[in-house]
Design a protein around this nucleic acid. Structure first.
Lengths: 191, 191
DNA sequence: AAAACTTCTTAATCTAGGTTAAGTGTCCTT
DNA sequence: AAGGACACTTAACCTAGATTAAGAAGTTTT
């Protein structure tokens, strides 16, 4: 259960009281695979931290095609940041891909915690900075690499994910169709 | 000159002393168009805030093709966040597109300011959150929209930029070749 | 353990956007 | 004001990846 505290203490140090206060403002839930934690069009009320299992966030465009924005495994945060910050309806779905235990931190409690434990401003600043760096890299990769190059990079970066989740999810993350993903994979295996 | 203070005060309130301290840790420079402020392979030492003019950040892949990550006009921040945070050599160039006046904030001074004015943790957290939201939207747009749709969205979002900078820059931001951009533009005009 | 569903594979065909190339316009330089 | 370097356009042709379709292989449900 202290996974989330370990996560925080990678960047800032908390006192025992602060840890207790933090935990008192969170809530733990378990969810079965296929559960939808957030629907497109809804307002995102929580940040989610994954204790175990796998979640994903994705949107669906006019053509009814899904596109994965993020996967979140053990020790990762996930949410619809746009909706969470603006408290307006978002475009993202958040779904459980593999039975999961999740820590929920509501927006209100997050704001209370910023006031009570200012160090958490620093923690979430660093967390967000790291996400932004990763996102910028992915954006540039999508602009400048071929699907095959992105696939190989993904393989190296998340070797365990590939065994755990459906191919179509990875295809969707990479921005290709499942058919093309399959073709690409067999082409690479033949080498 | 107080543009940067106005920018900060959109999210947090500073005392007169804090404002003075902040400004004392920054430096103003003017640059001619085509000046390179940061080279790929170099370590990024500063965050840049644009008082006037236009900058861009971009990378260059193996094929010698440029891809624009960001434009920054009056009132925007720019930098190579990856390199700035890690203090490792980055992949981005930062270049002046239109004669500019820029506020430089060094990484060391930024860290001093975090210590002296903890509210700035909050400011930069919010700034980074907003960048991340914008980046995530752009990423999803690149995955799910056609070049034409991205072009129209860009038009609506940054109507003034289009008059000011070369078409090839916008093409590069959208992820298409200048030739295709030109074709697309005349196709849209014919409607 | 059969039915029903979903995922994955393979292959033929199609298209958004890339490449190459040649010509025109524009704006720095000197 | 002439020359040179870019920036933009147009057009013919090309390709990475999409679409469609149909079958095979797992999974889940009953």
């Amino acid at each position: 259960m202290t996974l989330i505290l370990k996560n925080i203490e990678q960047h800032v140090t908390l006192t025992v009281q602060e840890k207790e206060l933090f935990l008192s403002k969170t809530e733990i839930q378990t969810y079965k695979a296929k559960t939808i934690l957030l629907n497109s069009g809804a307002i995102c009320k929580h940040s989610y931290f994954v204790n175990s299992g796998i979640l994903r966030s994705f949107n669906i465009n006019d053509n009814i095609v899904e596109h994965v924005l993020t996967f979140a495994c053990e020790g990762w945060w996930i949410g619809d940041l746009y909706s969470l910050l603006s408290q307006k309806p978002g475009n993202l779905f958040i779904e459980v891909l593999e039975d999961a235990e999740v820590v929920l931190l509501s927006k209100e409690n997050q704001e209370i915690l910023y006031r009570e434990i200012p160090k958490l401003e620093r923690f979430f600043r660093i967390l967000t900075e790291n996400s932004l760096v990763a996102n910028q890299e992915r954006l540039m990769d999508n602009l400048s690499l071929t699907a095959e190059e992105r696939f190989e990079k993904f393989n190296k970066k998340y070797p365990t994910l590939i065994q755990k989740i459906a191919q179509k999810q990875i295809a969707s993350y990479l921005g290709v169709t499942p058919e093309f993903y399959s073709k690409m994979k067999s082409r690479l295996l033949r080498k």
